[in-house]
Design a protein around this nucleic acid. Structure first.
Lengths: 109, 109
DNA sequence: CTCATATTTCCATAATACTTGAATCATGGA
DNA sequence: TCCATGATTCAAGTATTATGGAAATATGAG
């Protein structure tokens, strides 16, 4: 991932509502959750919600699956993978431990 | 770290110039690099640079150390630690592997 | 002290992002 | 078909953020 899109991803998650949306989708899992349900849970007006969902979709962090009249949104982890890899590889200095405590194991098992 | 400040951190890094500044400081290491040198490397006007340095300082991602007439800025990894931990713990679903490929080792060695 | 340099602050402007009511589109049920 | 519902788009207002010239502050050199 190049720096350019990394900043875009970070900006996409750098908003209270969008971060909440993404976390909710992560909690919800594969099946997803439809737009108005998200709006109810997070207290967002339909138009506002659509705006943020479009933003998150545009950068690839979430995806929507239409089913009947509903659109079920779910998190797309591939992009988050890339973002975490980018942050780990480019925003931490060599030996410095920027990794979460539960994943500090190094060396061959 | 609570969600609120996580969004603030992500927003702080979610700008091309600030992300470039932070990466430069990570590359530079402990000794740091003074403001005007950053400005030269990244092509930022003094006032603009100060604006972004203040933003990054405010959220705790960088710190400045005055020495003579210069202020040497360096990355403060503690906050990035927290951010990565937050993203790993809250923005990835249970068993799903959102962790960078080089740190997937699990279980006792 | 005076000057030069490093950095920030002030200020005005420009640009971008956010919000939301109303209108529109889409889908399925009666 | 007609209607109700889910969701998006449009348009317009508000708010926030970004930019950079000019002035101010700070520090050290001569």
């Amino acid at each position: 991932m190049e720096t350019l899109s990394a900043a875009e991803l970070l900006a996409a998650l750098g908003h209270e509502s969008r971060l909440s949306i993404f976390r909710l989708l992560v909690e919800t899992g594969e099946e997803g959750i439809n737009a108005s349900a998200i709006g109810e849970k997070l207290g967002l007006a339909p138009a506002t919600l659509s705006f943020h969902l479009a933003h998150l979709s545009r950068v690839g962090l979430i995806k929507g699956r239409q089913e009947s009249r509903f659109i079920y949104y779910s998190a797309d982890y591939a992009v988050m993978d890339d973002l975490l890899a980018f942050l780990t590889n480019n925003c931490c200095q060599g030996s410095h431990a920027c990794l979460p405590k539960t994943n500090l194991l190094k060396g061959k098992p």
